[in-house]
Design a protein around this nucleic acid. Structure first.
Ligand code: FES
Ligand code: FES
Lengths: 133, 133
DNA sequence: TGAAATAGGACTATGTTAGTCCACATTTAA
DNA sequence: TTAAATGTGGACTAACATAGTCCTATTTCA
């Protein structure tokens, strides 16, 4: 199955929310409440986005998050990588796939699968967060 | 994560193998051995393909499988649906998604996600098995 | 100091995917 | 007519990934 994880969906919703609140900090609680998103889970996601310099965070009372990049500077592809880690269309294509796929040698379709991988990547790289805002 | 399941990969390998053995029946055992694919799992997959009229099967001694469609008549998209069932880029977009996504109402990004869904579908519909053979 | 916020590790629950096992049905060749 | 070769198909288990929870810091401000 091909899908966008809940986490990525939450990230998109959060980024949309923050983008639309220019010039004022937005708290995780706020996003969680308005978007019906589990607070703890959302916190983790926002933390990751902050660590990747997509968001800026301010701790303490009156703290919150704000954008550190324009939505059109954030490809969906990298968002997905940030949130869910390495993304590849087939297991064996993943960089970290040291866990040697038993097919590594016998796979007869690796080339066309690699081509498809490229095409999907292309699509997800062209999409940016601005398409979701 | 976005990926082609092992099952679909096995199906592609099998279809390639069968396509390249024109005019002679191919047994599940044969494909399993040559492709390093778990026999039982492969059997299930071939059965599904047969039930969807992608393959023709012949039981009994000297039995085996042969193609019932040309590779270019089988879109990757439908192969994936046959093997793994309903395919959608986000949970809530799936037809069978009666299990009401808690976000159904509050989701702020359903439209753009739907657009993306369409685009991915498009890509997987254009690809056919002939691209893997 | 204490409340409001982010930071982050550890854990659990749930669901999906991959793989296995077993009994049965069909066909053919000996 | 029987045995072997093959496909059919249900039920089960194992392994893994995703989603979600819990708890304890740490930072900041009033
Ligand atoms: S082993 Fe990865 S495409 Fe086949
Ligand atoms: S609930 Fe599905 S796109 Fe948001």
């Amino acid at each position: 199955m091909i899908r966008i994880s809940k986490k990525v969906e939450y990230a998109l919703m959060a980024l949309k929310f923050i983008s639309n609140s220019e010039h004022k900090l937005v708290t995780a609680r706020e996003i969680s409440d308005k978007g019906n998103i589990p607070y703890d889970l959302l916190s983790k996601i926002l933390q990751k986005l902050k660590n990747e310099n997509i968001l800026i965070s301010n701790q303490g009372t009156n703290g919150g998050y704000s954008m550190n990049k324009r939505p059109d500077e954030i490809p969906l592809f990298s968002l997905m990588n940030v949130i869910d880690g390495e993304t590849a269309i087939a297991e064996c294509l993943m960089d970290n796939s040291v866990k040697d796929c038993c097919l590594t040698d016998s796979c007869s379709i690796k080339n066309p699968v690699t081509v498809l991988q490229k095409e999907v990547e292309e699509l997800f790289k062209k999409k940016t967060i601005s398409d979701f805002v």
